[in-house]
Design a protein around this nucleic acid. Structure first.
Length: 960
RNA sequence: GCCGGAGUGGCGGAAUUGGCAGACGCGCAGGAUUCAGGAUCCUGUGGGGAUUACACCUCGUGUGGGUUCAAGUCCCACCUCCGGCACCA
């Protein structure tokens, strides 16, 4: 009977060992074989749960692995310690956010210690401490000095619950990212970082980031939202300029109206007296609506005519200017030219409000349709169509005619020839035309539209209810799918440009716009400048003062940091509410001045922390250029995908800005990025009593009312009461089990459910591993050091092969794929095989080699038990002092291999062949065809074809 | 609507380059041990069928087609789920 695995004793013994020996301390100057591994630092707003742990456990595995591989690895840790959640939590508990935050940090460090997760703690950074935020303020000043930080009055999103403005990126799905409240619009003077100046650089940079997940790159690309097109100048009748952005300048000739966002500044002067009341009412209504309501795609488009007109610069047409809330002030110029024939929204809007719709682009499919009432044409019409080879169908009382552009002219002639004087017909699709007995009018201009309508109403008074030709056509169901399109086809009805093919249209029109001064080529971005002002206490104060004489004055670098006033915590307020804080003197003239009372968005703090880790103790510079150039970019960055846009985009921007200012020599901060998935757990909810802890649940029912509970599988969060604390698991099974299960449960980039059964499986494995090693400890200690693979028997050679394979797999899984789950599975297989081997006689040297190697390759995953067992088999040095095991290619080779044999695509036999035969296509073919099992199967039939893949299989085709 | 990703036993997942589908673990079943329970150990475990035979047949990786000697993997069409963006001009 071997000693029982007492994880409590084992883990207590080694808990502080690695730290005391400073294994995780990185030498700044040794950059020969450096590796900068970085986990996204946590936000200490509470205690860490096992879901958070995944990220840090991965980091610890990778760090220990590279240490054993002889790297000088830097893996630092710090705290993203400023911010609203901490401030709100502090308010709730009536404590100072600093105390609350520092308490959480102390607790989290204790959690890391229990987990066996080690860092170079000498480099710890805490963003809420003055020695850090001094440099956040320094960063602000550098951006300010280079024109990348500026103040402007802007309409911004203000969260009434959080009492502060939000960056665009913090409004998710129309609500505040933190609290779910729909923000209100406010016009305020705020500080911005000019991230838009780097829009193209951020986009181009993505192409170089091979080590980043595709989806993250795509998300950033979408977020930047670059679109190419043109800006075109329109003028109102009284000469005011309205600039629009369009991606389709080739459709300008079809712009039959304009739409302005309700906030557009030109509206006031444009609106006529008669429309004033309606416009004001609509603008007030828009302001009342929330962003979600306003941007719901479901809602029918609404708008109001301003009474004013603009001139279409390409054809001089006078077109009405409307306002509508589907045009957003925050995108492009807040004004659009509406081309209803080639834009779905404009089409719906024009149809609803009776605005002419003029097609100016041919359809790609060249289809045209025409529906003709039998009563409107002479009886020979059908025969004439047939003679012309035009396809048509009889559609109760009407001819439904399908044609293409080629038949168009011919068809018009036939219709006209047979049309009754009182009849009319139309074509729809690639060409829109109305045919009357005396003439054909193409729907080529607003003027033509009016002419068509007067002819139609003369023939059919009922049609006077319709406003436009398109409205008449829209009433005929057979035309429904051909009324508008967004193809990039040949231009029509476009003056001199008529006939320009789609592929040339954009370039030609833009060139002409530039020549004639009517517009210019332009690129528009969805990305906006980064709003960084926050009206809250718990952040880095903006280092700016306002002097009556000197205006906006940056705080001199020597005066940094601008300290957060150390006051009794005042509750849900900002620095503006702290008496005396704002009063200061102007650094230039010495006169009275006021400080800026806003603090910076916490994403500013985290946008540069990876640099501070390199020079954490310097109080004269934020970082030493030479050192960051040596260590950066980060070799491997790991964090949650929820930061795909915000943190990662901001960090890339700041790095590029620092690069252009000459502070660093690299322009991307993170070489490789890995985003780990979230850990989920069952959450229970009672319709009446809300979320319940799993231990409260009685037979799936609510303990308060006995109602059946709703169960969900959500990522762990305190609010849903479905978190599992590491203390609980570590107390019951130990940190090694907790770590092993976290790594084994599934591929780390995927979301996955935490189960207690799974934890027990990991625990069982460690018990088996412990018992196995201890049972062999004596044997290992006395065994010879070197093994002679040639002298082993078949079982021994098989085990040796398995061992070498496992070393290879574990090495590759950690180094390349980050697939810790399959690495652990491979180790389990090795343990299973070793168990079988040691029950027999076996070779002592082999057992020793395999057990030693096994302990070493498992040690990054479960460091405590491995450190202990390493001593138990006779060593007195540390695991981390050992070199990572290597494998030999020779040992991987099999002596014989089993070759599956497919006959007509199905595996029908397996043939054991010597490895030398198996690796040679011709020999393999011969051997397989000669094998009795195969001959029996073939039953005398001659193979038509034999495919022999060395080392893999043989496929035989016979006539059946 | 657009852009990503995924879909494999009762469950988590494996199959990395077109080459034996289901590694490893959980769960479950049977057995051993035990006064008993737990823990531990051994054996079995995709569905259906055949058999003296674990030496057999057959179906099977969301659905329907296709390419190939061979498809979870490649191609075409579609369904479902997850994530991101969304009246973007």
């Amino acid at each position: 009977m071997v000693e029982e695995y007492n994880f409590k004793v084992v883990e207590a013994r080694w808990r502080d060992f690695w730290r005391k020996r400073r294994f995780f301390h990185a030498d700044s100057n040794d950059i020969e074989k450096k590796f900068y591994y970085l986990n996204m630092f946590p936000y200490p707003s509470g205690y860490l749960h096992v879901g958070h742990g995944r990220n840090y456990i991965i980091g610890d595995v990778v760090t220990r692995f590279y240490l054993m591989r002889g790297y000088n690895i830097l893996n630092p840790m710090g705290w993203d310690a400023f911010g609203l959640p901490a401030e709100n939590a502090a308010i709730e508990r009536d404590v100072h956010p600093r105390d609350w935050t520092l308490d959480n940090i102390a607790h989290a460090k204790e959690q890391f210690r229990a987990w066996g997760i080690e860092y170079d703690w000498d480099r710890e950074v805490t963003t809420c401490l003055p020695d850090y935020y001094k440099w956040t303020q320094w960063l602000f000043l550098q951006l300010y000095n280079h024109g990348l930080a500026y103040k402007k009055r802007a309409t911004v999103n203000y969260c009434p619950t959080c009492d502060t403005v939000l960056a665009n990126e913090q409004v998710v799905g129309g609500v505040c990212e933190r609290c779910g409240t729909p923000p209100v619009k406010k016009t305020l003077d705020q500080w911005f970082f000019k991230i838009t100046a780097y829009a193209d650089a951020l986009l181009d940079g993505l192409k170089k980031l091979d080590g980043w997940p595709e989806n993250v790159k795509k998300m950033q690309e979408n977020w930047i939202g670059r679109s190419e097109g043109a800006e075109v100048k329109f003028h109102t009748e009284n000469g005011e300029e309205i600039v629009v952005f369009t991606t389709r300048p080739d459709t300008l000739w079809g712009a039959t109206f304009m739409v302005l966002a309700p906030e557009h500044p030109v509206i006031d002067s444009l609106t006529t007296v008669t429309q004033r009341a309606a416009v004001d009412a609509y603008r007030a209504e828009t302001q009342r609506r929330t962003e979600i309501e306003r941007t719901s795609t479901e809602r029918e488009k609404t708008g109001v005519f301003t009474g004013g007109y603009a001139i279409n610069p390409v054809n001089g047409e006078k077109i009405p200017v409307w306002i509508a809330d589907y045009v957003l002030m925050s995108y492009g110029t807040g004004a659009i030219m509406a081309v209803p024939a080639h834009d779905e929204r404009d089409f719906a809007f024009a149809l609803k409000y009776g605005i002419p719709i003029i097609p100016v682009i041919e359809r790609d499919d060249r289809r045209i349709r025409s529906v003709v009432n039998k009563a409107d044409v002479a009886s020979e019409f059908a025969a004439a169509l047939r003679d012309a080879g035009i396809e048509f169908a009889d559609d109760n009382g009407a001819f439904a005619i399908k044609l293409t552009l080629e038949d168009y002219e011919n068809y018009l002639a036939i219709v006209r020839q047979h049309l009754q004087p009182t009849g009319w017909a139309a074509t729809v699709g690639s060409r829109f035309a109305f045919v009357f007995s005396d003439r054909v009018i193409e729907l080529a201009s607003v003027h033509a539209d009016q002419e068509i309508m007067s002819r139609l109403t003369a023939l059919d008074p009922h049609l006077s209810a319709k406003h436009t030709a398109m409205e008449v056509l829209a009433a005929i169901p057979a035309y429904a799918d051909l009324l508008f399109h967004t193809d990039r086809g040949t231009m029509i009805n476009a003056g001199a440009f008529t006939g320009t093919p789609g592929e040339d249209a954009l370039d030609k029109v833009i060139a002409w716009l530039e020549e004639t001064g009517k517009g210019r080529r332009a690129v528009n971005y969805r990305l906006h400048d980064w709003l960084i002002s926050r009206q809250r206490y718990w952040g880095a104060p903006i280092p700016i003062v306002y002097c009556e004489k000197c205006g906006i004055v940056p705080v001199p670098e020597n005066d940094l940091p601008v300290l957060l006033p150390d006051v009794e915590f005042i509750g849900k307020k900002g620095l503006a509410d702290i008496p005396g804080y704002a009063d200061t003197t102007c650094p230039i003239c010495g006169g009275p001045a006021k400080r800026d009372t806003d603090t910076m968005d916490t994403f500013v703090d985290s946008s540069w922390y990876y640099l501070r880790y390199i020079s954490p103790d310097r109080d004269d510079v934020p970082f030493v250029k030479e050192d960051v150039d040596n260590w950066l970019p980060v070799d491997q960055y790991v964090g949650g995908v929820e930061h795909a846009i915000l943190h990662l985009l901001y960090s890339r921007f700041i790095t590029k800005a620092l690069h252009d200012m000459g502070y660093v020599s690299f322009d991307e901060p993170f070489q490789r990025l890995f985003t780990q998935g979230m850990i989920c757990h069952t959450a229970y909810r009672c319709p009446e009593h809300g979320w319940l802890y799993p231990h409260e649940v009685v037979d799936g029912r609510c303990p308060h009312c006995g109602r059946k509970l709703e169960t969900y599988n959500f990522s762990m969060s305190k609010s849903k009461k479905n978190v599992v604390s590491p203390e609980e698991i570590i107390g019951r099974y130990g940190a090694d089990t907790e770590r092993l299960y976290t790594l084994f449960m599934g591929p780390p980039d995927r979301d996955i459910e935490w189960t207690e059964e799974g934890v027990r499986g990991a625990f069982r494995f460690l018990n088996r591993f412990w018992a196995l090693v201890l049972s062999q400890a004596g044997r290992v200690k006395s065994a010879p050091k070197n093994i002679n693979p040639a002298a082993l028997d078949a079982d021994g050679r098989a085990l040796w092969r398995r061992y070498n394979r496992t070393v290879k797999k574990v090495t590759e899984d950690i180094e390349g794929r980050f697939n810790f789950n399959t690495a652990v599975a491979a180790v389990m297989e090795l343990v299973n095989e070793l168990y079988r081997y040691v029950t027999g006689e076996g070779d002592d040297a082999l057992v020793r080699a395999v057990i030693e190697g096994l302990i070493l390759i498992l040690s990054p995953f479960t460091p405590f038990i491995c450190e202990e067992l390493w001593r138990r088999i006779g060593h007195d040095d540390a695991v981390l002092e050992q070199a990572w095991p290597t494998y030999s290619a020779a040992a991987l080779e099999e002596e014989t291999i089993e070759i599956p044999v497919q006959i007509n695509g199905k595996v029908r036999a397996r043939v054991e062949v010597p490895a030398a035969v198996g690796s040679d296509s011709e020999a393999l073919r011969e051997a397989v065809l000669a094998a009795p099992a195969v001959r029996k199967r073939l039953n005398g039939k001659e193979p038509i074809k034999v495919i022999a893949i060395p080392g893999k299989m043989v496929s035989i085709v016979v006539r059946s």
